[in-house]
Design a protein around this nucleic acid. Structure first.
Length: 717
DNA sequence: CATACAGACATAAAC
DNA sequence: TGTCTGTATG
């Protein structure tokens, strides 16, 4: 294709990036500035204009969705299949390398991938085995610790215990866990990255091969890379490959998951010849929205610096709604969304964004009342559902008998008379002999240490698996899945469960068979399709729920909203303690990340943006009174407009039991008052009557105060 | 072995 | 306050 036409639709900065000469490139891409477009066009440019062979290009992303989108768009652009072009997630690419070089990486040939639930189950067992107190060291926390170490590229013997008993114990569990994984032939997500890094680091010939092969590395969302991912990239780039990385320090919101924004600076340091290009022209939002976002993020320090602008119109002001409580907030959102839909717009163009998942509930209730279809992001994904994981565990055992987590999972599912005691005997045997549970079970059966009934049950289980293995050896993948799901007794097991609950599970199992039927195994891999499929299930857990066909309002956290855009956005719960979240408020770094999260939220909106907060919010069964978020104060006043409910005479009254007594003279709920010392505020509740009457007032500056009416001398406003 | 109940837990979540 | 998990129980 004509190289000129690749550059033609781009703006000058995009063009500069796409056609950059042979130098490392760092693209600072603001929200909505055409980041994916630049990556896609860069690849097309390399192939069409620079004559780079597709197999010399490696492109890395963080999600499968981004990888798939990139590949499709490249193929559309260059009108060519891209078989030899490696595009994938860090984990997917690491997995690919480890499958090819499993021996050099010290892995078993049929190794399986643990997802984070599997990892936690495994850890629970290891913690018991090494005799660490489960209550003092909850598996969740140990898991967090281990993963954090792996993100940093640290093995147990690299970690300093800092003379701290707790750390020493964690390190001990980490080491034992590593051991157990190696024996079982399983590998968690962090381990994929760690091993892939070590593979290259310790095998000069392999490293040399890939360094020569990949003359061009492209990385998306570079601000989200963690330490080990960065190290891996650097190793792979060597001295001769040209890295082209795209990121935005202002949208770095995953520090808690190991992401290191500093990698942007390290990159400039390690590749001094780097060309830094800023994409600041925005194609998504109105000028008002961008100006607001710019103003908020300007409060952060140590930015690389960037200012979004648009050629488009100013647009509407940003509307701020001070809700009375969380139900009022939800009602407001629903009313405005109804108006939006009545004006002939799509509900799917509307997003309700919030800081934490617990906030979704009230919106769901309000939407349900209004009979407005909605979709909540998050929650269990297809391959994470219990019944699916049961089925996968059988398949994994067929592929690898030593897979202990899978053994534990299904040894008595469906129940077949192998109780907790029997499993304990097997576990002890495994620990004593240093073998997998499968081998231990074999030994236990042979040694005749169990009661006859238990022994027969274990025998039957071992037999079942051998039989499954034999049965499916020559079947097509979907027939294998179908066979295992039936013969294992899973289908029958769920069919017997309470009617609709079980029925859904049976349906999901059927769906798994369809997924297997539609699965296209990697044509370059000589592994059995089943092993490919199992890896796919672990690496790509699938969509949250079957995509809603209906035109739905979108509900999601700010984190899940990253990368998306909506015509109408409600950014809700802008209260101190909620957003910014209480747990980040006292830490300057944490606070800056909250601010970036706010920036991400603001920049999701294309045309209209509403910000709301509730003066009173019921959370975990308790009423909380918060002041408006500091982020609201960081918005330039000339861009905003306060919303007052149009037809409302007085503010909505939500009856509390204490309100059955009338309000003390004039001090109705929602009434604005002034106090000599505390300044202005709003009445949000009252108790008692006569001389003892007290009111709860939410003051703008000092928060909420309970005042005795007789003494407070409140002035009505 | 299915159900009931008590107790823990509640920031964000891709691979 | 509501949900989820592990365990007690009939």
């Amino acid at each position: 294709m004509d190289p000129g036409s690749i550059l033609e639709p781009l703006n000058p900065a995009q063009r500069q990036a796409v056609s950059a000469p042979k130098r490392p490139v760092l693209v600072l891409a603001g929200a909505g500035s055409g980041k994916t477009r630049v990556l896609v066009h860069r690849v097309a440019w390399l192939i069409s204009a620079e004559g780079i062979a597709p197999q010399s290009i490696l492109a890395v992303t963080f999600t499968n969705k981004a990888a798939a989108e990139m590949r499709t768009r490249i193929e559309t652009l260059i009108q060519m299949p891209t078989r030899n072009l490696w595009i994938g997630t860090f984990h997917g690419l690491a997995h690919r390398l480890l499958r090819i070089h499993w021996r050099e990486a010290g892995l078993q040939e049929g190794f399986q991938i643990l997802d984070s639930e599997d990892q936690q189950r495994m850890l629970r067992r290891v913690i018991k085995n090494v005799g660490v107190d489960e209550n003092e060291y909850p598996p969740r926390e140990v898991q967090w610790f281990i993963n954090a170490q792996k993100d940093e590229g640290l093995r147990p013997d690299h970690i300093d215990d800092e003379g701290n008993v707790g750390r020493r114990q964690m390190i001990k569990v980490y080491a034992a866990y590593e051991d157990a994984c190696n024996k079982a032939g399983v590998i968690d997500f962090g381990e994929l990255l760690l091993r892939a890094h070590e593979l290259l680091r310790d095998n000069a010939d392999i490293l040399g091969h890939y360094q020569r092969r990949f003359s061009h590395l492209l990385v998306d969302e570079f601000q989200d890379t963690n330490t080990i991912q960065y190290a891996w990239l650097r190793l792979l780039a060597g001295d001769s490959s040209l890295p082209f990385v795209v990121g935005d320090d202002d949208q770095s919101i995953y520090r808690w998951r190991g992401a290191r924004v500093e990698n942007l600076l390290r990159f400039q340091h390690h590749f001094p010849a780097v060309e830094l290009i800023r994409l600041e022209q925005n194609y998504r939002s109105t000028a008002n929205i961008l100006q607001a976002a710019n103003a908020v993020i300007a409060n952060n320090s140590g930015r690389l610096g960037k200012e979004l602008w648009t050629e488009g119109p100013k647009g509407d002001p940003i509307r701020v709604y001070a809700a009375f409580n969380e139900r009022d907030e939800a009602e407001f959102v629903v009313n405005r969304t109804s108006d939006w839909a009545e004006q002939g717009n799509k509900r799917s163009e509307v997003a309700v964004l919030y800081r934490s998942n617990a906030q979704s509930r009230v919106f769901e209730e309000a939407l349900m009342n209004a009979r407005m279809p909605y979709r909540v992001y998050g929650g269990l994904r297809f391959f994470e559902r219990a019944e699916i994981k049961d089925a996968l565990a059988y398949l994994r055992l067929v592929a690898n008998r030593n897979d202990d987590p899978s053994f534990e999972r299904v040894v008595n599912t469906p129940t077949r008379g192998i109780g907790a005691r029997t499993v304990d005997v097997i576990r002890q045997q495994a620990r004593a002999a240093g073998t997998s549970l499968w081998r231990a079970a074999g030994a236990v059966v042979a040694d005749d240490v169990l009661a006859k009934r238990a022994r027969n049950a274990v025998w039957a289980f071992l037999d079942l698996l051998e039989k499954l293995d034999r049965d499916i050896a020559n079947l097509a993948l979907h027939e294998q899945v179908d066979h295992v799901v039936r013969v294992s007794g899973l289908i029958e097991h769920f069919r017997k469960q309470k009617l609709d609950r079980g029925a859904v599970k049976v349906e999901n199992l059927e769906e798994l068979v369809s997924a297997a039927r539609g699965f296209v195994s990697d044509p370059d891999s000589d592994l059995p399709p089943l092993v490919d499929f199992l890896a796919h299930a672990a690496l790509e857990a699938g969509e949250t729920q079957a995509a809603a066909y209906e035109d739905c309002v979108q509900l999601m956290t700010l984190h899940s909203a990253k990368g998306l855009e909506f015509k109408l956005v409600f950014l809700c719960g802008l209260e101190e303690g909620l957003f910014p979240h209480q747990r980040s408020i006292s830490d300057p770094q944490g606070l800056e990340e909250e601010r970036r999260l706010c920036y991400v939220g603001l920049t999701r909106a294309q045309h209209q943006l509403y910000l709301s907060y509730a003066e009173q919010r019921r959370l975990y069964g308790k009423d909380n009174y918060a002041t408006a978020s500091r982020f609201l104060r960081e918005l330039p006043a000339e861009l905003t407009e306060e919303v007052r409910p149009a037809i409302q005479v007085s503010r909505p009254v939500y009856r509390h039991r204490s309100l059955e007594v009338g309000a003390p003279d004039g001090l109705d709920l929602g009434r604005r008052v002034r106090h000599r010392k505390y300044g202005e505020g709003v009445v949000i509740n009252h108790e008692g009557s006569g001389a003892h009457a007290r009111v709860l007032v939410n003051f703008e500056t000092v928060g909420t105060k309970m005042l005795v009416v007789a003494y407070a001398k409140l002035e009505l406003m």
